[in-house]
């Protein structure tokens, strides 16, 4: 009987103590709740990623003007969108020999700009470590937004949209 009663009496000893310091307990809980609300709000305020810094805008303008040159290659299937957020020459045979070196340079410049874009957005938002995640997000969205007939890479294979 005594051994059974001991744990109960121990519990009863804690109960009034907890009640006596209920104020402290409530204060701590309220503090925690307030902290989490404030932090959630600040996290939501920062939920929009900044894509309008001068560096990012410059890269966007450069890519915008290059897109006019790349567009016929996307449409013919000479160039496709890779699964990792870049562009690649998919079928060089579709391009006249004289234009191939220009196309290679175009793809190289486009990919350099894309790297700068991903890195720039991550840096603009104070999180350079987000570059990989931003690149992955873009990779999916480039492919989703690609026009019908363009070639996109999925699971290591080229597919025509």
């Amino acid at each position: 009987m005594i051994t059974r009663m001991q744990p109960v009496s121990r519990c009863l000893g804690w109960l009034p103590l907890g009640l006596r310091h209920a104020y402290a307990v409530v204060k701590a809980l309220l503090c925690g709740a307030f902290l989490s609300i404030a932090l959630t709000l600040s996290a939501q305020a920062a939920a929009d990623l900044d894509v309008n810094t001068p560096a990012v805008a410059a890269v966007k303008a450069s890519m915008q003007s290059r897109h006019v040159q790349l567009l016929p290659y996307f449409q013919s299937g000479a160039v496709g969108l890779t699964a990792d957020g870049f562009v690649a020459v998919k079928e060089a045979g579709l391009v006249p020999l004289s234009q191939r070196s220009a196309l290679t340079a175009l793809v190289k410049d486009e990919n350099a700009d894309r790297t700068n874009l991903y890195r720039g957005i991550a840096a603009a938002n104070g999180h350079p470590e987000w570059e990989g995640e931003i690149q992955r997000t873009f990779a999916i969205r480039w492919i989703d937004k690609a026009q019908p007939g363009w070639f996109v890479q999925r699971d290591g294979q080229w597919l025509r949209k």
């Binding site: 920062a46 939920a47 990012v56 987000w130 931003i134 873009f138 937004k145």
Partner: peptide, 15 residues
């Protein structure tokens, strides 16, 4: 935490 939804929105805008 990486704001995935915000990143997607930003990507759509940029693209």
């Amino acid at each position: 935490y990486f704001p995935a939804a915000a990143a997607e929105k930003a990507a759509d805008k940029v693209i």
